[in-house]
């Protein structure tokens, strides 16, 4: 079926995009370049959301992650002056790389075996949900998490503002 192989081609294209972006994010010496890799990954994941026929969440991913979170991280890079001439410039030691790889491989082994051998049968094509149904779901059975996340965002914002006002005490 040509349309199905086209869909697989698009899927693997997005997967390649995500893999390249994620490797750039963790391995790049330059933090700004690492942030560009993170943005690549976020766009790739948004594409996967579109492929899973959840376009609303894909748009939210682009708006929230690419629009807000990556700008915040860019401000963090800028304000702390930790780009290539800064702290990250001299590369990490080899021992640290080995330890980090071991740490990353432990969940890869266990979770990977689990999801390969125990995953339930999956649908080939997801059906689309209307945004109005999503809103009704969010405001009727899921009202408590919805309110809690608003509270969490408010508290985080207030905490960030208070931390920003902190002056260094005189010793």
């Amino acid at each position: 079926m040509p349309s199905q192989s086209l869909a697989y081609a698009v899927l693997f294209g997005h997967v390649a995009f995500i893999v390249v972006g994620a490797l750039m994010t963790v391995l790049s010496q330059n933090l700004v370049r690492a942030l560009v890799g993170l943005i690549m990954t976020l766009f790739g994941v948004a594409g996967l959301f579109f492929l899973m026929s959840a376009p609303f969440i894909g748009l939210m991913q682009i708006l929230i992650y690419v629009g807000a979170v990556s700008i915040l991280i860019f401000f963090a890079i800028m304000l702390t002056q930790s780009w290539s001439s800064g702290d990250e410039a001299q590369g990490p030691s080899r021992k640290r790389a080995v330890l980090a790889s071991l740490t990353a491989l432990a969940p890869a082994l266990f979770l990977g075996l689990t999801i390969i051998f125990k995953s339930p049968p999956s649908l080939l094509v997801a059906e689309e949900t209307e945004v109005s149904a999503l809103g009704r779901f969010l405001l009727e059975p899921y009202i408590l998490p919805f309110e809690l996340i608003s509270l969490l965002l408010t508290v985080a914002m207030a905490g960030a503002v208070i931390l920003g006002f902190e002056r260094r005490k005189q010793r």
Binding site: L31, A34, L48, I73, E88, A100, T103
Partner: peptide, 24 residues
């Protein structure tokens, strides 16, 4: 793909030396 992102993130948190790199 999700598992790959988890493992890469864990790797990054330990491999990076600055706090900003860990946030990524």
């Amino acid at each position: 793909v999700a598992l790959f992102l988890l493992c890469t993130g864990l790797f990054g948190v330990i491999y990076r030396r600055t706090l900003v790199g860990m946030i990524l």
